[in-house]
Design a protein around this nucleic acid. Structure first.
Lengths: 207, 207
DNA sequence: GTCTATATGAGGATAGAC
DNA sequence: GTCTATCCTCATATAGAC
């Protein structure tokens, strides 16, 4: 059962690296620390990952790729637009205050420029994929007359910008997390504003 | 005239550090490089700045404090709201694509968390000061009936979020700068959306 | 104040035994 | 594959002469 122990160690290393990089970024984590946290020696770590850069890129790609996992972007529009948008916005806010969104945001801004060959791919798989999914949702709302959506991609940019706001920025610079009440006010204000801008010109004009 | 030479060197060191830190961040710049760029020895550099952290904090405070210098946030509202907002948005966009805004944004996200005792002060002197100034402008527009502004601070958050969008984020991760046409489309779309949301309910109701 | 030379330590990566 | 021990580079910071 040697290979089983090996597989377990491999997983330990990945999990340790994932957590540490998300917390402290590329420069903030040493290979010594990753090895120690995973309970292996540095040589073992290097036997599995040829360099710190490769390890980091692998971790970041995994985190970034799971950006669509969140259940906070509905696949299809069902129900009332305001309720759907409010739930979406709440999910997005916590995603960028506490969750993977914050970690990926920080890793992108802090360290991605070190890997020029990855930038375009990761950008497409992360932020752009998220926008596409939001745009699809908004397009459905537009088709049903719940919103007056001209260009769904542009509208998605607007919605994301409003809901995201300064949340990940403020968290990244070290400000304490906003309270639930503050998040709720932020979300509420963003959604109401978005609805003002994209309300259907004639609310009764539904097909 | 020894003190004159000394003052010149002091300035050289500050200018070098300012440029280098803005380009490469705290970790990306060594004291060796700062000294070499400034044309002095490392010992001289340390005679003027007791540590790299102190030097960095001094540079960042100066850059951040000049955030209000830009002529792109008018002190007073004069003319038509749409034109003022469009000029403001163009100025802000280039501030965050090329200018000091981009540099400060990156330094904040990348390195400010290393100086917990500075976070609150720098946040107030930078992002919050900018928002205050935008809020004052919007409040004036509201008072004159050019916009329907309920809470100027909230409206400023919305406007900044829309205009800033992903510009500094995309630039920070290493994407190429958007073309002038792309910036113009972005700005135009943000301003039009903002105006839709904050248009006066009754445009003729001016005092 | 300013220089050259150096102390000191951290961290990425590898050698060699098992 | 995994370990211990080590190499090597680089970066902060300082000693000591002028």
């Amino acid at each position: 059962m040697k290979s089983s122990g090996s597989a377990r160690k491999s997983e330990m290393m990945l999990k340790a690296a994932q957590r540490l990089f998300a917390e402290a970024g590329y420069e903030g984590v040493s290979m010594d620390l990753v090895a120690k946290t995973a309970g292996v020696s540095k040589a073992t770590l290097y036997a599995h990952f040829e360099s710190k850069e490769k390890l980091f890129a692998e971790i970041l790609e995994a985190e970034n790729g799971r950006i669509e996992d969140g259940d906070w972007i509905p696949e299809r529009f069902e129900g009332d637009a305001e309720g759907v948008l409010r739930r979406f916005a709440r999910g997005m806010a916590s995603f960028f205050v506490d969750g993977r969104g914050l970690a990926v945001y920080r890793l992108f801004v802090t360290d991605l420029h070190r890997f020029p060959e990855l930038v375009a791919r990761f950008h497409a798989a992360g932020p752009l994929a998220m926008r596409s999914r939001v745009a699809r949702l908004l397009a459905q709302m537009g088709e049903r007359g719940a919103l007056a959506i001209d260009d769904p991609t542009v509208a998605a940019d607007h919605l994301i910008a409003l809901v995201q706001g300064r949340l990940p920025f403020d968290r990244s610079i070290g400000l304490p997390p906003p309270s639930d009440a503050e998040i709720e006010r932020h979300v509420e204000s963003a959604v109401r504003f978005f609805l003002r801008g994209y309300a259907p010109r004639n609310p009764t004009d539904r097909r």
